[in-house]
Design a protein around this nucleic acid. Structure first.
Lengths: 338, 338
DNA sequence: CTTTCGTGGTTTATCGTTACACTTCCTGGC
DNA sequence: GCCAGGAAGTGTAACGATAAACCACGAAAG
């Protein structure tokens, strides 16, 4: 029943040693004899003692956990990313916990409050809607690595995706495969500040321009939440409104999946009538019918680099910020006529 | 540079009040005058003070966060679940953080160590591979609600899915639609202890038996990680090995997505040659071609009930454990001949 | 005029660890 | 025989907040 949780001094008393010795044993410090160590461990086990991480953290500062802040829990991209990071951290005996920054700005600020972030040894900040000013406010003495597309103050360590290059690659591929009227689904030509949608639209426009095609604004189809359902409904709408296209660059694979469904609804065949390229190379994308041609952001490398930057900051609080840009590659599958 | 983080006593000194008064202001306690309050808030703002949650937690016990432990970050089911929970908790001004219990037993035990769990006000434990003994070890004075299928000691609060009934519903639907040789992909007839795969296979077998069909073991196709890729490869293999089927009950929607791809590879048409039903009703399932007929576990209700059980434990530490069983329903789409 | 009470605070004692400095005791070198 | 130095361990003071009890003072009550 309501028995109090066992504390370190309970163990110490029971084992007939000082609290410090228990602490020393549990932290594998060298100043404790072999038999004492065994005895303490036996008592720890017998009493079922478990360390209070909160107290340890308050005193020592180290927590052994890294936080990953993602915009939404249900974006597949971040689920896959979190998995990779978690595995990589386990090798260093660290632990990953994921938080959602949330849709609303209020919730985003609350998730990103210094108070919350300080609970971690380091933080990986997935693409967020914060502007520079917000990021400047959280200026903690805390290792942070930004993952994502937004422009951030230089003093941040950062792993960025080649958004523009990737979008260009995708669009060029569509052109090579014969598409001429290529829409960018989920793209935006302008936004209060640069974000994924604008970068990827920029790559799209660049590829079109280079090929002598017109990146006309009709072909830029914005989205709000980039959900599959929204993408499907939007494609249905624009087709019904009479938009003629023979290619779609969807800004994410999820958007592409919605587009695929919308095209199917409209009786259009992929890739014969309309070719389609996504961005992210989700696990699922290889298993759609047709398989989705997409841009692979090389997540394993992104993750490895991000963790390297984090460890660099662990080792040296004042390590000079690095700015890594990951490579992207095209993965061709059945949704384009290769 | 390396300027120390601002602490509550810094604020107190600067504002010319006691530390307790600052605490009282920040916690909206009533014993502080209006002008003092304003002045303190002004100083807080000016110094950029943010509370140290670790210290608060150590002293007061409350953390304002709930932990959700999921088996894997990249399972879509849990991503969607986490999203729902997070939204629901935000309404109570609480925060969700997600941890992965991991594939290996070692990592699972580490994630579930009392030490880790104690950092939360309450914990939602997604389906885990722990057995009763493990669960008994973690017997913290901590509100826990189990979400999922495994059998657990009665003293746990628990929201369970109607696995067997759902599987039966799925299989009955396949039979109604004319399927006669129905495989259960990802099912298991026996396992060291009951789990999702065995429950769902049980429902499948029950439905077949009731219809006078033979739940023959050839039709039980086990999986290991329930990934899309594995499901696809496995379906390809069993078809190549000559298995004749006209229906598949896939134990999860992800497995169904893999099956769909595998059937497509084999030149089989869904639903004309083989009908397919999944389980989970993921967001994506409505947007496949064909749309996936599936079992909807009514996640919103599960989430609401789970949080209700959690709040009950917040209010009364010794609340009698409840055992909620959610309802399931069939969602028919194009992957069956309805 | 004394008692009571509400308002607006402050003081004190922790919460459970760990950093740091300090003490023994023992071995060995010269 | 004496001192240096390592091995094994202990004592004390935080880390940064909050719970709980306490205090001063003016107003209302009797």
């Amino acid at each position: 029943m309501g028995r109090r949780t066992v504390t370190m001094s309970d163990v110490a008393r029971e084992a007939g040693v000082s609290v410090m010795t228990v602490s020393n044993v549990l932290n594998d410090r060298s100043n404790v004899g072999a038999d004492t160590r065994l005895h303490v461990l036996e008592v720890v086990d017998r009493l079922g003692y478990e360390i209070n991480l909160t107290a340890r953290r308050l005193r020592s500062g180290r927590t052994g956990t890294v936080g990953l802040i993602v915009p939404r829990f249900d974006l597949h991209y971040y689920g896959e990313l979190a998995s990779l990071i978690s595995d990589a951290l386990a090798a260093d005996r660290m632990h990953l916990v994921v938080e959602q920054s949330g849709a609303s700005r209020e919730r985003e600020l609350s998730a990103l409050s210094l108070a919350r972030l300080q609970q971690y040894d380091g933080v990986l900040l997935g693409a967020v809607g914060l502007d520079m000013a917000d990021l400047d406010r959280i200026h903690p003495d805390l290792p942070i690595v930004l993952l994502g597309e937004q422009d951030v103050p230089d003093r941040y360590h950062r792993v960025q995706m080649r958004n523009v290059a990737g979008a260009r690659l995708a669009t060029e591929h569509l052109i090579t495969c014969g598409a001429r009227r290529i829409a960018v689904l989920g793209g935006k030509l302008t936004a209060p500040r640069p974000e994924m949608a604008t970068y990827r639209a920029k790559g799209w426009a660049g590829a079109l321009a280079d090929a002598g095609l017109d990146p006309c604004p009709d072909l830029v189809i914005p989205l709000h939440d980039y959900s599959i359902a929204e993408a499907r409904a939007t494609i249905t709408d624009v087709l019904a409104a009479g938009l003629k296209i023979d290619g779609i660059f969807a800004v994410t694979d999820e958007v592409a999946i919605g587009a695929l469904a919308g095209l199917h609804d409209a009786g259009l065949h992929v890739p014969d009538d309309v070719q389609l390229v996504g961005f992210d190379n989700l696990d699922i994308s290889a298993h759609l019918a047709p398989g989705l041609t997409t841009i692979d952001p090389d997540r394993p490398t992104m993750v490895a680099e991000a963790l390297r930057l984090l460890h660099r900051q662990f080792a040296d609080k004042n390590a000079a910020p690095e700015h890594i840009v990951s490579t992207v590659s095209l993965v061709t599958r059945g949704s384009t006529r290769n």
